[in-house]
Computed example of a mutant assay.
Amino acid sequence: MLKKLAIIGFGSTMIGIGINGFILPFHLINGGMFGISLLLKYVWGFKAGITFILLNIPVYMFAYKSDPVYFFNGLIGAMISGIMIELLLPLNGTFQLPIMSSVILGAVIIGIGVGVMLRNHISPGGMDLLALLIAKWSKVNVGVIMVATDAVIIISGLMLLKDPKLLYSLLIISIVGLLAALITTFHSVKPFTK
């Protein structure tokens, strides 16, 4: 349990740093429930972390019926991720980087956080939890499922906000999805023994 909490703490902190430090300053979005939460923040001024937690409730109900272990891990993962997004809000505007550097760095930080959590069958919430369940049933890699759903969210954001800058968000989801896929498929190398 302590190991699980440490992984959730690490992953959530990375997600909070990536979103607040590098994604929010340029009004970009990433995928999943995080992306939907950020869209609602930009359009109506909702608090991203709290919106994220609320959006996850229906997904948890579905997950609880399908797989109680994923439900429990996802519930803790999403609650802590939502809290970390709110706690790390002061990072917004701290790093003065060009948009491309910010996008790449933010996506890598988020991707590591999401990937480490998913590798340990802990979902940072929402779409990631659904992606984990779908991956379990379909044997399709969780990172591939995430990229597909995230692309739909970003295209919706592009239509709602009509801001071409949101195209950078496609790069964010690609990097996050790629890192999640790599981290979840990487197997630790066993030491050579004579």
Rank of each mutant, 00 (worst) to 15 (best):
52 F>I: 07
53 I>S: 05
53 I>Y: 10
54 L>S: 08
54 L>D: 08
54 L>T: 11
55 L>P: 03
56 N>A: 04
58 P>K: 03
58 P>S: 06
62 F>L: 14
63 A>D: 04
63 A>K: 05
65 K>T: 12
70 Y>V: 14
71 F>W: 13
71 F>K: 00
72 F>I: 11
73 N>C: 00
77 G>P: 10
78 A>C: 09
79 M>T: 15
81 S>W: 04
84 M>F: 15
84 M>C: 03
84 M>I: 03
85 I>D: 05
85 I>Q: 00
86 E>Q: 11
86 E>S: 10
88 L>H: 06
89 L>M: 13
92 N>Y: 05
94 T>M: 11
97 L>Y: 05
97 L>P: 08
98 P>H: 06
101 S>T: 13
104 I>L: 12
104 I>V: 14
105 L>W: 02
105 L>E: 00
106 G>I: 10
107 A>T: 10
107 A>F: 07
109 I>W: 00
110 I>L: 14
111 G>Y: 09
112 I>W: 12
113 G>K: 13
116 V>D: 02
120 N>C: 11
127 M>V: 15
128 D>E: 12
130 L>N: 02
132 L>C: 08
132 L>M: 13
132 L>F: 15
132 L>E: 00
134 I>E: 05
134 I>A: 10
135 A>E: 08
136 K>G: 06
141 N>Y: 04
143 G>R: 12
143 G>M: 07
144 V>Q: 01
148 A>S: 11
148 A>D: 00
149 T>I: 14
150 D>Q: 07
150 D>L: 00
159 M>Q: 11
160 L>E: 05
160 L>A: 15
166 L>Y: 04
167 L>E: 15
169 S>I: 14
169 S>R: 04
